[in-house]
Design a binder for these strands. Structure first.
Lengths: 216, 216
DNA sequence: TAGATTGTTAATCGATTAACAATC
DNA sequence: TAGATTGTTAATCGATTAACAATC
């Protein structure tokens, strides 16, 4: 079955829909129209219907969308109905912070291991998981069928570890290192470049405060 | 002077240009053509020239672009030629990790204060900066002319603190809380929704591994 | 100068919005 | 049924790519 490729623009909006629908569900809202949702989320109703229809019809004419059902379906699309085991490479401040973040678990992302090449960190525990040395990584990835690796190491180390990850079955890399990674086809990279994000904020602040005049 | 609005698509690419140019500069490369840069970065030369020309001509026909000059100009556009003081609201794992991250300082982002409402965290130091209680926040923002607030607190608290930030002169919010913030015009919000990013990765992993067949 | 490469206009592509027939 | 609202096609808008004259 050939499925048409869904654009990343659409994918990027799904988690936000998921969040709003989860809140509506928790508030006991049973049904919602694209019009109501559009006002809540400040997007067009047209876009909402187009987005959902990429994955088939979730609504019903004259009724709208069932919140609970739509929430669950979007969750499935995002792969949140299955568990994803992950390891963290880099037990510095950021790596440990991510290991301690409990909400990922709630979505099916299971924290299995954490690794660092710094001997002084080895043995230290992050949420009950001991930091291991890098030499233990390949076997651990295979034995635990790790799907996702979170990279919270400096860029040079990051580039070097990618091959090990890929060779041992990792399918997705959540990359916090400030570098573009090269991976073979079939392996996914999602970048979180914090300093890029901060620079964007910096630009927008500057451009919103023109040198002289009040505002635009 | 009316300047045409630059699209966020372009802004979003500037930090990546900045990173590549910085590396070229460090490698001693003096000049580069849009063609060479396009091969390095895996984007079209056309896009590179279009992007740069949003801000005026940085190049020279027949020569290309001077790396050092272009790097500095993009830095200026991003506001990296001036200092930006910031505070962190929320001294949990993520807040402390960001406070300890030294690279921001290098780009002109100065870590001035960190706040939390949890009394057990108050007084603790993050990179030499003591955690203060929330009641100290308004005066601190004004007295230190804080430009940016980093929100690393749960979503409910985040929504509540925004007014205090805006009223006391904060111009930009770097929002790690999993909620959409409402701010008045002129105040910028840059969201880092980590779980959204992880869900996108999850989707891309799932869709890249079709249930049955090998690959597309 | 001649060759190279930009700056910029024109063409294409893709994403968003509008409109409306289908249908619950 | 009649009204409401989806699913989907068509129109618009914006972003990307191609082409080429300007110019160093």
């Amino acid at each position: 079955m050939v499925e048409k490729e869904i654009s990343q623009a659409v994918i990027g909006r799904l988690p936000r829909y998921f969040r709003y629908l989860g809140e509506l569900k928790d508030d006991g809202v049973e049904r919602i129209s694209s019009q109501e949702l559009s006002e809540l989320m400040h997007v067009t109703a047209s876009q909402i219907r187009q987005d959902f229809n990429n994955f088939g019809g979730f609504g019903q004419q004259g009724y709208g969308y069932n919140v609970e059902y739509l929430y669950r379906e979007i969750g499935k699309i995002l792969g949140l109905d299955t568990q994803h085991s992950f390891v963290i490479i880099g037990a510095g401040n950021l790596g440990r912070a991510l290991g301690n973040y409990l909400n990922f678990e709630r979505r099916g992302f299971i924290f299995k291991g954490i690794f660092d090449r710094d001997p002084s960190l080895i043995g230290r525990e992050v949420r009950g998981v001991p930091v291991q040395g890098m030499e233990a990584l390949p076997a651990f990835l295979r034995e635990n069928a790790i799907e996702i690796a979170v990279l919270t190491i400096p860029k040079n180390s990051a580039v070097g570890v990618v091959d090990t990850l890929v060779e041992n079955g990792v399918k997705g890399i959540w990359n916090f290192a400030h570098v573009d990674l090269n991976v073979p086809e079939g392996v996914q990279v999602e970048n979180v470049h914090l300093s890029d994000s901060l620079m964007k904020l910096s630009y927008n602040i500057s451009s919103a405060q023109p040198v002289k005049s009040g505002n635009d």
